[in-house]
Amino acid sequence: MSIPTQSLSHEDIVAVYEVLLGRRPESDSVIEYYRHAGSAAAVVRSIGQSAEFAERRISSPFHHYHSSFDPLAIMRRHAVSGLPPRDGHLTNFLGVVIHGKFLPGILGDRTGQVEDIPIPANWHADIAEWGAALRAVELARESFTMAELGCGWGCWMNNTGVASRRLGLKPHLIGVEGDEGHIAFAREACASNGFAEDEVTLFRGIAAASAGTALFPRQSASGIDWGLEPIFNATEEERDRALRVGSHDELPMIPLDEVIGDRDRLDLLHVDIQGGEADLEDSCIDILSRRVSYMVIGTHSRQIEGRLIDSLLNAGWILEMERPAIIRLTEGTLLTLVDGVQGWRNTAL
């Protein structure tokens, strides 16, 4: 066997092993062998074809979901080949472009790239969430209307909107978000992905069962913290102090029926509201059952997952996708490391 003359450094080989296999090379001779493989790409290809890498990939917790449909087949049906890159943006497998400034800590070195299909996961979602959201798109007919509660930069607005448009459906995308800068990101993202102004409705406020006001944290720069939680039922003293020091804004609570408006129904409701999802569902079960066809819910604890399952099954909904929250036990306390995902289909609609 001839040995290529180009060599990689000791640190290069160690880094590739740690990224792909989660460990250091087993010996100096292995490092020396791969140093002369010709290129980093050749090393990656070689290790990527190994049984150890295949086993490690399959063992990802994001492969451990339960569903009544094939989410991998759905993802592959919607994957677009030959996508061109765009400067300053990451392009995902659906053709959605995401500006690097939205998540500078995550996307800073990925702009100008086109991302592969995210199996089992990418930087913001896994098979369960991609599959359930795209399932709602495929169940829609003629038009596709969705609402994203806690929309951030509008990720699910744009992902499902682009997928629905490619199927020939007329989209209307609705977002509710408390952070002013994130609302601006969502508006820009929708425009960058080709949605007209009359195809997008954005509310700055807090998704809730009924009208009112709540306190929402301010951050120094948008795009840093995506897990900000509103304060409901603040005392007058708490409210005055928060507004005086500028730590929070007082925002309207926007009821679900106002979000839906005079539209016949929502084909998809995506809910990710930092722990308030079960309370919202309990308070809105009537309107959900009358006017929402499909829900994808980000669950922030095992307790919330149980509440949702009890309530929605009793209301006649079908659980089509479930991947539980990934937790860590710390001295008997359950700490959620990664949100869970539930996909629910409304049999009444």
Rank of each mutant, 00 (worst) to 15 (best):
V271M: 13
T160S: 13
P120H: 09
Q274A: 13
V162G: 03
E18G: 04
M75V: 12
S60L: 14
A234W: 10
E115I: 04
F102L: 02
L280Q: 02
L169V: 01
S7C: 01
I326Q: 11
R45Q: 13
A278S: 15
G22S: 04
P84N: 04
E250C: 12
W317M: 09
F232K: 12
A140T: 06
K170L: 13
L20A: 04
L337K: 04
A73T: 13
F144N: 06
A15W: 03
L280H: 02
F203S: 09
F69T: 07
E26H: 07
L83G: 02
R291N: 12
I3F: 09
I3W: 11
G112Q: 06
W226N: 04
Q219Y: 05
S39H: 08
G276M: 05
E197P: 07
G261T: 13
S2M: 11
D310S: 12
G178Y: 10
D262P: 02
S2H: 09
R323C: 02
S2R: 14
E148P: 01
F53L: 07
D310W: 06
R244L: 08
V44C: 12
S301I: 05
S46L: 00
Y65D: 00
S27T: 15
R291F: 11
M295E: 07
G22R: 03
P61K: 10
